[in-house]
Amino acid sequence: MLAIACGTAPILPAALGAPNAANLDDATAGRIDELLALRAAAPGGQSRGELIELLSRQFLGTPYGADLLVGSATQPEQLVIDFRRVDCFTYLDYVEALSRSTDRDQFVANLIQTRYTDGRVDFQQRKHFFSDWSHTARIAATDITATLSTAAVTVTKHLNAKADAGTYLPGLPVVIRGITYIPSAAVNDNVIGQLRTGDYIGAYTDLPGLDVTHVGIFVMTPTGPIFRNASSLAANNKVVDSPFADYVRSTPGIVVLRAQ
Score class of each variant (00 low, 15 high):
A3G: 15
I4F: 05
A9R: 11
P10H: 13
L16P: 00
G17Q: 02
A22L: 07
N23F: 05
L24W: 10
T28D: 03
A29H: 10
D33S: 13
G44C: 06
Q46P: 00
G49E: 03
I52A: 02
Q58C: 01
A66Q: 01
S72K: 04
A73I: 01
Q75H: 09
E77V: 04
Y91N: 04
L92N: 03
Y94P: 01
Y94W: 14
R100T: 08
D103K: 01
D103W: 09
D105R: 13
T114W: 07
T117K: 13
T117M: 09
V121W: 04
F129H: 14
F129K: 06
F130W: 14
F130S: 03
S131Y: 09
S134F: 12
T142D: 15
D143S: 07
D143K: 08
A146Q: 07
S149H: 03
T150L: 08
T154R: 12
V155S: 08
T156R: 14
K157F: 10
D164F: 12
D164A: 06
T167Y: 05
T167K: 11
G178V: 00
P183Q: 02
A185P: 04
V187H: 07
V187M: 04
D189Y: 06
I192Q: 08
R196S: 14
T197W: 03
L207E: 15
F218P: 02
P222Q: 02
N229L: 04
A235C: 04
N236D: 15
N237L: 12
K238Q: 15
K238W: 07
S242T: 15
F244R: 05
F244N: 01
V248H: 02
R249L: 13
T251K: 07
I254K: 06
L257F: 12
A259N: 10
